[in-house]
Design a protein around this nucleic acid. Sequence first.
DNA 1: TTGTAGGCGTTATCAT
DNA 2: ATGATAACGCCTACAA
Lengths: 366, 366
Amino acid sequence: MFEKEPGRTAGLMHSAGQRAPRQPSIKDIARLAHVSHPTVSRALHNSPLVRPETAEKIRRIAAETGYRASAVARGLVTRQTRTVGLVVTTVSDPFAAEVACGVEQTANDYGYAVFLADSNADPKRERSVVQELAERRVDGIIVTSSRVGALYLPLLKQLNVPIVLVNDQFPGAFVHSVMIANRAGSRAVMKHLIGLGHKRIAYIGDRNGYQSDVERLASYKQALAEAGIEFDAKLAVKGNGGTATAIKAMNGLLDLDRQPTAVCCYNDMTALGAMRAIHARGLRIPADISVTGFDDLFFSGYLDPPLTTVHQPMRRMGEIAMENLFKLMSGEQSVAQAEVKAKLIVRGSTGKAKTARGLTPKSRRR
Amino acid sequence: MFEKEPGRTAGLMHSAGQRAPRQPSIKDIARLAHVSHPTVSRALHNSPLVRPETAEKIRRIAAETGYRASAVARGLVTRQTRTVGLVVTTVSDPFAAEVACGVEQTANDYGYAVFLADSNADPKRERSVVQELAERRVDGIIVTSSRVGALYLPLLKQLNVPIVLVNDQFPGAFVHSVMIANRAGSRAVMKHLIGLGHKRIAYIGDRNGYQSDVERLASYKQALAEAGIEFDAKLAVKGNGGTATAIKAMNGLLDLDRQPTAVCCYNDMTALGAMRAIHARGLRIPADISVTGFDDLFFSGYLDPPLTTVHQPMRRMGEIAMENLFKLMSGEQSVAQAEVKAKLIVRGSTGKAKTARGLTPKSRRR
DNA sequence: TTGTAGGCGTTATCAT
DNA sequence: ATGATAACGCCTACAA
């Protein structure tokens, strides 16, 4: 039980010929301070059980050598890594990025570090990524826009790691989640549009069957029904949440015999594409066509015209997810689902319907 | 050296009364398979040294129990965590997000996990964040848009962790980095604008003295000089890289006695604000004023009009950073700086200068 | 082909 | 107030 080469101590910080000059360990500090390692540990944790002068000396030496206790060794013994995993479809998605920001800040406030992992929106990959996170013994996991959702129930038991979902896209029974009020948001948009006199309102959704699209589309239809406007299947088209696809979808809408006077987009990225397609045809927004989005991404208020959309407090949702995860991690079982409010932000991309502003008989077509 | 309670084995996966039902360990698997732990280890690492049937049985049991070797325990003994730290100013910055995406994908391909940390563009925080990463024993660190730059030299020795910087904002001697060709990019923009006949070209920069602004501004001035256009200090204003500030800056420019006919913006976020300000005054782009950006963010091609800008291969830069970090981690010393090309993307936001298209004498002012 | 015996750098539990 | 000593879960000799 001897200390390896005694001469090593002094040359510790120099890479004196050794390939991997390891970081100083608690024992190195102990030796330097002529105390035992437990004492070093106590001193560095500000334990009152150590004589002030001793503690002072130890802290000085630790600072001089740049010693920092290994979080991995600590994690091994304490059985918690003070680490959480964050799974996103991709960080280049502004929605995910904002959520990540909220998660990261909150985690940091509590002294937790976060592992970032991309699922590429692939369910298989999402699952394997979660497993890898478990392998790293994270204390908890947050998944945004999960493509797996309900399937977590069985996994949860096995992984034995609390998981919180943000905008779960395939919700099932009883997983902990933070969701935006899709229905209320979409409803508010539709009320706004209908109030402006629009009757031919198109919807550009998402073809993947995600929960957010399902709910927003449902509210679209319901609002139509309540206003006594018949649902026209030709006006409800599918994109994929991206801008390029939205352009195609919008062009299809523009090619219709009777163009819509307003387009309700699944999200802001889709609206961005729709606006581009409309402008490319020389049409004006909102004079010719009104456009709405959903999310209120950072650029939406700066578009020309500024986009009327539903604000989703993405960062806050990340914070809530992290806060709820902390509760779960500390043993609370009663977290379940949280729903955050969606707020309509009226900006310049919506205006009165053409017909409502007095259309010439000629342009009324037949 | 006895195995704790023998009866524990069977009930392992159930949280049979215990508070923290720990994950199964290698010893649990060993016991279940009636072999020693090293054999389990070997089997799971596909070592040829273990009898096929034994290996098969072990793997089966491991799969059934959902056993996954603890990465933290492994990290302790192997002295490498297969983990890297990524420090960004904030993930909600689209530039950082793209770089993060490249880093993440590449790291993942190599079986590495990445810790995401926000510096909030605060030098102090950046340093402390890096220290925390070192405490977690990451094998390497990548910092985007570092606010510390040169100061890493001393830190590097102490931390003993390789670091690669992406678009270092305060470059000093000899830190490993991946940089965009700021000068060439800015120069290309200016050549383009000047070629279009612009003579009053404004520049909206960044007030923080960052390297990217310094270099882009320098090229702006140089291009002006080469074209024989006198530099007008009133046309070179400062924003902070954000959209809101850019609007103010642009408004200032618009209030000038002699408005610029083109605005060269420090980055796309700034251009976004400039465009908004211009449109808000009822001016047209590019008919009245041309606008250029830098970065080519995901939304830039969809603006109205689409933004002429300098494409920065952000994701690729993240990949390169990660690749170079791997080299550093495996002992190579010769990585140093990498510069990636900047490519001008001409889109609709730039056009011939007003004067060049034939201005009426009256509007030529005196 | 398999098992035994450390040790990685901490924290935790005892003594003293 | 401090020091032995034993885990934590894994890997890696070395021994059998």
